[in-house]
């Protein structure tokens, strides 16, 4: 009986109440739930913004140019994901594979940037010249009283930022870390789909929904990053926020 199979089979599109497949609805509901997850993490970050008792603070460690680059790469990966899905629905399997692999590579590149950035933050150093005491950040100014002749005119001090350093470190690493975890999961998912598509009958235009689901997830993770980049990075560096 057809209706029994519709509940569980892969070809249920035309037989559900809404016409949408179960998996598609599941993904949307899950993403709604995930919004609350990231919303709570971002809320925690905002509650603790400017409440750290010591540095380093966002203006000490953030390098907007680097992060803008990685953000650009991640956004482009969303575009290549769209192109991959479009190629699949048009039956262009090679185009699909190329764009899918590009998406994976760009996602991995973003993760590479994140690893680099975390590493930079953990090994952050304060470069200090006692002859140039202007343009210092609040945190760097705490070093200024050392310029009383007891230290060299120029010194470098290790002042790393870890999740244990201050509230900024705690909230920043946990929020961006969970986002990075989501991206990692996405890359694994897309890679699995890429290898699956190399096998005969693994991914076919008829099974485009499998790819559509991963694409939905991927775009969601990108959108979350746009919010993180704006609220944490841009608002963290430019004064007035």
């Amino acid at each position: 009986m057809a209706q029994a199979e519709l509940a569980h089979g892969g070809h249920e599109e035309h037989q559900t109440t809404t016409g949408l497949s179960h998996k598609k609805l599941l993904m949307w509901a899950f993403l709604g739930s995930d919004c609350m997850f990231f919303g709570s993490l971002i809320a925690t970050y905002l509650v603790y913004k400017n409440r750290s008792l010591g540095g380093p603070l966002p203006e000490d460690v953030f390098d907007i140019l680097t992060t803008s680059t990685s953000t650009f790469v991640l956004l482009m990966s969303s575009m290549s994901m769209v192109l991959a899905y479009s190629a699949l629905t048009r039956g262009n399997m090679n185009g699909f594979r190329i764009w899918l692999l590009s998406t994976c590579i760009m996602g991995a590149t973003f993760l590479g940037f994140q690893v680099f950035e975390f590493n930079e933050f953990v090994n952050h150093e304060v470069h200090f010249e006692c002859s140039h005491l202007e343009d210092l950040t609040k945190f760097e100014r705490t070093f200024a009283d050392r310029c009383d002749g007891t230290v060299d005119e120029v010194f470098i001090e290790h002042a790393g930022l870890t999740p244990r350093t201050n509230l900024f470190g705690t909230t920043f690493f946990v929020l961006t870390g969970f986002h990075g975890g989501h991206v990692t999961l996405g890359v694994i998912w897309l890679l699995a789909m890429f290898f699956y598509s190399l096998r005969k009958g693994g991914i076919t235009p008829a099974k485009h929904e499998e790819v559509d689901l991963a694409a939905l997830y991927w775009h969601f993770v990108d959108i979350v990053w746009i919010i993180i980049f704006t609220v944490i990075y841009l608002f963290g560096v430019f004064p007035g926020f």
Binding site: S52, P163, L167, T170
Partner: peptide
């Protein structure tokens, strides 16, 4: 892991 979310001595707000 020793983070500071609820560590009041690091400035955390217990109301969070």
């Amino acid at each position: 892991y020793g983070t500071n979310f609820f560590v009041t001595s690091a400035g955390a707000n217990p109301l969070l």
